[in-house]
Design a protein around this nucleic acid. Structure first.
Lengths: 165, 165
DNA sequence: TATTGTTATACTCTATAACTATA
DNA sequence: TATAGTTATAGAGTATAACAATA
């Protein structure tokens, strides 16, 4: 990791101008984080898909199960996908009989989306099984490590997901 | 999977049988982590793709730049994709003139993969630009938070990526 | 005119199965 | 027989542009 050198060692000690070391540190963290997210999302995707629904589809179903009802636009925002992608996802879920689309009361442009009974079954029964692989690993990691991971999860969400600019 | 209710809630308080609270805690962390990885990989992918190469392709180029030379099989392992996926990725990169495939000396079954000069250019010039978005956010998060993220990155890699079973 | 959603189009990402060539 | 890689096939994930309907 070779970060040799002290900060401010070249005389540029203004507080708001990051020193070379800090810049290196951020650069390296960024590269590691990028790679980790890319690879671990692949791994997780493969471990949380089932024959019934993919990881992405399950995420939509789980959101609907908690929120009761939503619209394609709200779901697209929540999942961070473009509207056409959500239209397609909902189309597949509807074909599979897991969600139902109906007219929005009051605003004819919008569409209401809700789980069917079958969709609710998939969420409730699938949840435990779906996260089993991840739970096993977290269990093995130990309490202290889970504490770090909980902090980091919240932090990553704030840093990557919720911030808007 | 349905492991029959909560463990430990019936008075079995052996130290290696996680209490109900711990089980709930792990379950919740697993669900949050799954969702975070799914969503943030989407976000990151959209912010690290360029016209030249996608996020995945860049990751392959960056690995080659550091390792000098590799084989399709080793790259597939490293990226956690199946062999046919790597074949296709390499095909596209080769078409674009960024990598070169050549006969493996000593083992005719294997193939050697290396960057072309053009591919090296893409890596070296693309690195800073590609991570700019992520670096800005990490910079804004502050030193203490980056420390947590560094710990968590290493921890997640050990927990999710490196463990084999 | 702005918003919501969909359709059309065109990629990339991904896996499994079957095949070829070499060891 | 086992290993490395590719081809064939199929489907999911993703985005932008163009369109329709409603507000």
């Amino acid at each position: 990791m070779a970060r040799g050198g002290r900060e401010g060692s070249d005389g540029s000690d203004r507080a708001d101008a990051p020193a070379a070391d800090e810049s290196d540190e951020v650069t390296e963290l960024a590269a590691e984080l990028r790679r980790l997210l890319l690879v671990s999302s692949r791994i997780l995707r493969s471990h949380t898909a089932s024959e019934e629904v993919s990881a992405s589809q399950f995420s939509v179903l789980a959101f609907l199960q908690r929120s009761g009802t939503s619209t394609p636009g709200a779901l697209a925002d929540f999942e961070h996908v473009s509207p056409p992608v959500m239209t397609r996802m909902l189309g597949r879920l509807e074909e599979a009989g897991l969600v139902r689309r109906s007219a929005h009361p009051g605003d004819g442009r919008q569409v209401q989306v809700a789980l069917t009974d079958s969709g609710e079954q998939v969420v409730l029964q699938g949840r435990a099984e779906r996260d089993a692989w991840l739970r096993r690993r977290l269990q093995a990691a130990g309490p202290q490590e889970r504490r770090t991971l909980r902090e980091a999860t919240a932090l990553l969400r704030r840093t990557l997901v919720e911030r808007r600019d």
